[in-house]
């Protein structure tokens, strides 16, 4: 893993998410897409570290710190181990993985945010569904440039 390139990629994705994409009503979650990408194409120890790091980046640009580190970390790690059983190498499978991971992460983040006594948005689940669907549609196409930047061979299975 090229960690400097990884940090640069996460930084760019975080800045784009917080600025360019933040003003759309429903937007793709770049950090979610990257989480699935690293869970699918990295070895387990690297993928666990990247999951939590991406969660930290997601928390930095969200209203409260903590919920997304845990959610991204937990479900990113779960996806790593799932990937050992079911290889997620085809684009439709990757899209499904992004969609389901997005829903699970969003739901856990929601509950953890409530645990912090932070109020929730009214249409939270509708927004979550839209974001996950959008990310699932866009995500697999972003895997190739991400793999080129990190210098990962995507056809490793």
């Amino acid at each position: 893993m090229r960690w400097f390139r990884f940090v640069a990629l996460i930084l760019v994705a975080t800045l784009l998410q917080a600025s360019l994409l933040a003003y759309w009503d429903i937007n793709p979650d770049l950090l979610l897409i990257l989480l699935v990408f690293f869970a699918v194409y990295c070895n387990s120890s690297e993928a666990i570290i990247t999951s939590f790091t991406i969660g930290f980046a997601a928390d930095i640009i969200s209203p409260a710190m903590g919920p997304q580190i845990i959610s991204f970390g937990l479900f990113g790690t779960a996806l790593v181990y799932l990937n050992r059983v079911i290889a997620i190498k085809k684009m439709p499978y990757q899209a499904i993985a992004i969609f389901i991971t997005g829903i699970l992460i969003g739901t856990l983040t929601h509950w953890l945010t409530l645990l912090r006594a932070e109020p929730a948005t009214k249409n939270m689940f509708l927004m979550l569904l839209g974001t996950s669907l959008y990310s699932a549609l866009v995500g697999p196409f972003l895997f190739l440039p991400a793999a080129w930047w990190i210098r990962i061979k995507t056809k490793r299975f």
Binding site: I48, I49, F56, M65, P67, I69, I70, L74, L112, L115
Partner: peptide
């Protein structure tokens, strides 16, 4: 995993 999860809990 445990260490990172604990870090997350500390932030939470």
């Amino acid at each position: 995993f445990t260490l990172l999860l604990l870090t997350g809990l500390v932030f939470l």
